[in-house]
Nucleic acid binder design. Structure first.
Lengths: 185, 185
DNA sequence: CAATTTAGTGAGTGATTAATCACTCAAATT
DNA sequence: AATTTGAGTGATTAATCACTCACTAAATTG
């Protein structure tokens, strides 16, 4: 076909493939997104996606890993820049950083879809690992109590529910009940 | 084929189909479970499933609706039989009832998969409706504050995460952090 | 009993999709 | 200049899957 002016090496391609995978899987989940959609988004052939990632499962897991990587980086940075040094203050700063992170939805939706695909052992394993790192980070950097960290995660999950169902569009009282106080999301 | 001794009428069939759908969709989610699997579980032909439920989407939504129906029944009953009449006591009783309900996982997993499939408008609508009824019930029957009800839902979501990743199998400290105090689950 | 309605299926069909293969082309190496 | 290597694709394959249709057996009705 037409001459390709700029060739990327495999590692650059890998990066653009998982960027595409992150966004495409976030939209339709594991079972409902064809690998062809990832290839199209990345602007390369499906065949080459399969050359760099041998199965759809491997590709999805790679996207998940990138997702947790981003979350961890963001929360680590937030913990460092927390104005208030108190445990609750640091946890609060992490929560706000997470809120800002998930405005684009992809990071959030990948987690939702991963939970749904957790019957695949590799997926379950990565969710567990991501969660482990996240909990340990929150605990170590904030010094907050177990109960506070548990609550931190619980409200993160509530946030996922709110976003997937677009509850913020609704003015009903019940929706406000779930939404209230999570204003930064 | 062989003579069928006992024929059920359509409504009975419908009931057994959604019972099968509930269990099969709970295992592999919307995108990854073929309708043939539902038919097999119900012990009837795929063609007849499609006669009673015109599309896979309609079938899934029907299973979701049954799921919320069961949750609502259970929580309503729990609110009635709460020993302590205080708002927190009633909410606690509802939480425990929910915990007992989801030991079989199907009710829980359908919700997780529904959240993942919420880009389908009908699915999103039913999740919203189920959530609305649940929040209103919790509020009306317990009389608890908005914050308490919000927390009730948030910890329900945390519970979903714990179950999908089988965190109870793990003895690690971080897993205990998430798990602690939710002992009835 | 004849006619009609209801429950139910076997055998497809067309579309989609995960994965493979046989290639091409350009750049680096010898 | 000849050879190897690495990036990349078009075409295909084998399987799966949502959905349809022509049909039969049984129950119901008149």
């Amino acid at each position: 076909m037409s001459t390709n002016l700029k060739l990327s090496d495999a590692d650059t391609r890998r990066a653009s493939i998982i960027a595409a995978a992150l966004s495409v899987f976030a939209q339709s989940g594991y079972g409902s997104t064809p690998v062809a959609a990832v290839a199209a988004k990345a602007g390369i052939s499906q065949a080459y996606v399969f050359k760099l990632y041998p199965t759809k499962e491997v590709l999805f897991v790679a996207a998940m890993e990138r997702c947790y990587e981003i979350i961890l980086e963001t929360l680590t940075a937030a913990a460092d820049t927390a104005p208030d040094g108190s445990p609750e203050g640091i946890l609060e700063a992490m929560g706000e950083a997470y809120a800002r992170l998930i405005v684009d939805r992809d990071i959030l939706m990948i987690q939702v879809h991963a939970q749904s695909a957790a019957d695949i052992p590799a997926v379950k394993a990565v969710v567990r690992r991501g969660l482990a790192t996240l909990v340990r980070l929150a605990k170590a950097r904030s010094g907050a109590s177990d109960a506070a960290v548990q609550s931190f995660i619980a409200f993160g999950q509530l946030c996922h529910l709110i976003v997937t169902t677009d509850l913020t569009e609704l003015n009903d009282d019940w929706a406000q009940t779930l939404w209230k106080g999570m204003s930064h999301y």
